[in-house]
């Protein structure tokens, strides 16, 4: 009798275990996208590309790997270096495969999950297809997507990591792009002094405060807080004629000629040179432009029509620059999470 009771208990256990549902992931997920409390809701929410440590790590490995380029010499990180706010090393135009020069200044990368579209001209409409442009651009990584996929499939290391991250045996461009998209979407800069003041955790100096007041009066109509961009495309009066049509090249609408993305200003101090063509080397030059250097043209932004600028005083210029320096986010620039 005792024996049979044991049997029943034993079988009950069997029943219990054999019917246990295949659990997908452990309930504890410490690794996640965290929206800073003072930021709006992001545009990219990782749907179909849910955040996991394995996916993020894989995306990071790809971001730092020159395997994405034609002759395995140029990685994403080459022109998007963390210490430089994920822009290039203070050069106007970046060198691609064989040293060829690009045509626009490498943009600093941060808070990409909030962008409705990408690039200086907004030509790319989704973070998951963003990397296709630099990989295939003849002046940049000059590689085909099919070749990249073939190279990745020839790597046991990558095959193992894709299997772990996405449970696929054959690597496809879809998942390579999702991994890169996940890494880039996780690049969040929200701990500059500006952010800490914005959230009541720090205070500006008198000069910074004056600069912030000038910024709120003159700049936020484009550099909207707290992301410091409204993501629009505008002609900020740097040219009377356009050698690069910018947004107009994408929309094929002449009224968009000479318009470029309003850039996000985080880490602006270290991401020089400035503008889509890197024409200004210092913040003083940029502030001078907005003060008295505006040029008129058919598509110049309405706020700059029939004016040469805001006419800042010398002190105001210094205050504005003092404020812009508070946008440097050292936590972001040194975040070990993003390091190779």
């Amino acid at each position: 009798m005792k024996y049979s009771s044991l049997l029943v208990i034993g079988f009950s256990f069997l029943v219990f275990f054999s019917c246990k549902k295949e659990s997908t992931t452990p309930t504890v997920t410490p690794f996640a996208f965290v929206k800073p409390a003072h930021f709006p809701a992001p545009n990219y929410t990782f749907v179909g590309n849910e955040v996991t440590q394995d996916r993020f790590d894989l995306g990071k490995q790809l971001f730092y790997d020159p395997i994405l380029s034609l002759n395995n010499t140029v990685s994403c990180a080459k022109c998007h270096d963390q210490a430089h706010g994920f822009s290039d090393h203070n050069i106007k135009f970046s060198n691609g495969v064989d040293g060829t020069l690009g045509e626009r200044n490498s943009p600093a990368l941060s808070n990409l999950a909030w962008y409705p579209n990408f690039m200086w001209d907004g030509g790319v409409n989704h973070i998951e297809v963003l990397s296709v442009a630099p990989i295939t651009n003849q002046l940049e990584m000059k590689e085909t997507i099919a070749n990249v996929v073939a190279k990745l499939n020839a790597s046991t290391n990558y095959k193992t990591k894709f299997k772990k991250a996405y449970n696929i045996d054959l690597i496809t461009d879809q998942y390579m792009l999702k991994a890169l998209g996940q890494f880039m979407g996780m690049l969040v800069s929200s701990d500059s002094k500006y952010d800490r003041v914005y959230t009541g955790k720090a205070t500006f100096t008198a000069s910074e405060e004056n600069g912030y007041t000038l910024f709120k009066t003159n700049c936020v109509s484009c550099h909207a807080e707290p992301l410091t961009t409204d993501f629009s495309f505008r002609n900020n009066g740097i040219d009377t004629q356009f050698t690069d049509l910018g947004r107009g090249q994408i929309t094929q609408n002449a009224s968009d000629n000479g318009k470029f993305r309003v850039p996000n200003l985080r880490n602006i101090t270290i991401t020089y040179p400035y503008m889509h063509d890197g024409r200004f080397f210092t913040l003083a030059q940029v502030v001078d432009h907005y003060s008295n250097g505006i040029k008129q043209s058919t598509t110049v932004d309405p706020i700059f029509q029939n004016t040469t600028g805001f006419n800042f005083s010398p002190t105001e210029k210094l205050d504005l620059i003092a404020f812009l320096k508070t946008l440097t986010d050292n936590t972001y620039l040194a975040n070990p999470l993003y390091q190779k």
Partner: peptide, 11 residues
């Protein structure tokens, strides 16, 4: 995208 029927510069 590896099918080469995709514009990278204007999605």
């Amino acid at each position: 995208i590896s099918n080469n029927m995709f514009w990278s510069w204007s999605t």
